[in-house]
Design a protein around this nucleic acid. Structure first.
Lengths: 118, 118
DNA sequence: TCACTAAGTTGATGTTCATCTAATCAGCGA
DNA sequence: TCGCTGATTAGATGAACATCAACTTAGTGA
């Protein structure tokens, strides 16, 4: 507790202070949860397939694109659903998934370098 | 192998086929790695602090904002660095981090619903 | 009701990850 | 050189996760 105890920011030797944190803790937790849903290559491809289809997609058309088992695909789709990135509906034998663009736009806005809040 | 073996897409009862996958496997792996770097609340706040500073940020100004130990912050900063999201430089006693906007823009573009490729 | 198919759930397993303490590296000043 | 501080690295540990086989649920058609 003697010499270099003072932050260089205060002593003028370091950098400009961080004026305001752009993300509070709860927003960070929510955002991180969405990023975690996209942090798996299979889920990212799933999301890509569903989002680029422009319409709803049948699970039976998704599964053949992947080398993993059906239950694994089902698990990943559930993760995407619980993250609010997609929704689904059963119609007859088949289940259809479609993207929820609101969530994707929100997370995309998080990535846009936020304007400094000062 | 009798009745419903044929994909509904082919039999006309399901949905429009996925013409082209928007993300190939290697791009998905690379993108997922970046999203994984952002999938932790602490790393997302770190990224937010560094990106919103508009300039480089001293580690000594970052650490006090978090309730975890110094080595843990260091670990998370390394993950962000290895994901290509930030870079750093030691100057004297202190280490400074700054954002690499290219990577953030690339990942943000991934999230923009890709125009249908057909 | 019965046989069949699509999709999801359960339970188990091996791996990855976040975190800590302790030790090390790097720079400054006396 | 020695002592001090900032930051990273190394190793260990407990929790979370991806995956599969087996089973269950939901729906179709005969």
């Amino acid at each position: 507790m003697s010499k270099q105890q003072i932050s260089p920011e205060r002593s003028g030797g370091c950098c400009s202070p961080i004026s305001v944190m752009a993300l509070n803790e709860s927003a960070a937790a929510e955002g991180a949860a969405v990023f975690k849903a996209l942090s798996d290559p299979i889920r990212l491809r799933l999301m890509s397939i569903i989002a680029s289809a422009g319409d709803e997609v049948c699970v039976c058309d998704i599964t053949p694109h992947f080398a993993v088992s059906g239950p694994t695909i089902s698990h990943h789709l559930r993760v995407l659903r619980e993250a609010g990135l997609v929704d689904c509906e059963r119609r007859g034998t088949w289940v259809y998934y479609w993207p929820l663009p609101d969530r994707m736009q929100w997370i995309s806005a998080l990535l846009a370098v936020p304007e400094p809040t000062h």
